[in-house]
Design a protein around this nucleic acid. Structure first.
Lengths: 158, 158
DNA sequence: GTGATCCGCCGAATTAAATTCGGCGCCTTC
DNA sequence: GAAGGCGCCGAATTTAATTCGGCGGATCAC
């Protein structure tokens, strides 16, 4: 993970369909070299894959909410089952498993407020392991397009 | 946004680097047709772009946290300035602007707990518009790889 | 110091993909 | 029933991905 690898990762985060030739040119290296580097980043699991970013409104998902959820008992199997089943619901975008007073933050999308309400009644009110949930509407979700490497931890001089 | 468009969006969410030919074959259409469809999805803003998914640990970001933040005054300019400056910080992955008791959820990553603490002291404790923030560690963040279109709202028969 | 070895980079050749474009068929409209 | 428009197709062309043999610098043993 040297400078060159970081630059490749940087550019592919900005544009995952950047052609190998164009990327090589940006970095000032040969296409074959660039291809090999990029493949290695894959193989090492550093680049995990490529995804198209899709407009939520185009998918008829104009309402977003975060559902702070508590479940009991907090046993491994109950947690895993909750995560799995919830992630599979089409309205669910992502699930944060948390420390603290809330056990999960579930990011959900729906057509409108009525569907959000129906979704919660169908999938949260009903479940026995869920002992409470608080729903907050999301006005806006901004995402940082590029995550760079953070500097390694080094000992501070005293 | 017919069946075919949905299928294209579906496959490109799973693999943003799927070649046009392979995609066309999966759908049983000609490559030229597939290319035209995909380009239109772009032009219409339905496909917003492509991103490489990068391993957080490879970027030296092993610790994740959600910071529930309140700012005052809740004026348009103050909100916009907060969103902008926070999104630019390298530790910040995304910012949810919320209704409810918390004004924002800020998803942050750091090398370790010490850096997370330092980050919060540097960028949250200091800011005058932030009147409170609660930090919760994220154990795990699961993401739904594919978001399909939700069925349109239709009137229920009474 | 010197020779051997390894590793990563390069560039030409080959294979495969993206892109273009003219034409065909179907559906709509009048 | 004829005219027009739209979307799909497939061959031709352009561009990109991939392969692979070789070069050069760095490392290591002696």
């Amino acid at each position: 993970m040297d400078e060159l690898d970081s630059a490749i990762v940087h550019h592919l985060q900005l544009d995952g369909r950047l052609s190998n030739r164009a990327l090589a040119e940006k970095l000032g290296i040969a296409p074959s070299t660039c291809l090999e580097r990029t493949r290695l980043l894959h193989r090492r699991g550093i680049i995990q894959g490529y995804r198209a970013q899709v407009s939520l409104s185009a998918l008829n998902r104009s309402v977003q909410a975060m559902v702070a959820t508590q479940i009991r008992p907090l046993r491994r199997d109950v947690v895993a089952a909750f995560e799995k089943s919830v992630t599979q619901l089409p309205e669910v975008v992502s699930v944060y498993t948390m420390a603290g007073s809330d056990d999960f933050l579930v990011h959900v999308t729906a057509q409108d407020i009525d569907h959000l309400h129906a979704f919660l009644l169908d999938h949260f009110t009903e479940r026995r392991e869920i002992i409470s949930f608080r729903t907050s509407i999301i006005y806006q979700h901004l995402t940082n397009p590029v995550l760079g490497p953070l500097p390694p931890t080094t000992e501070q001089r005293p």
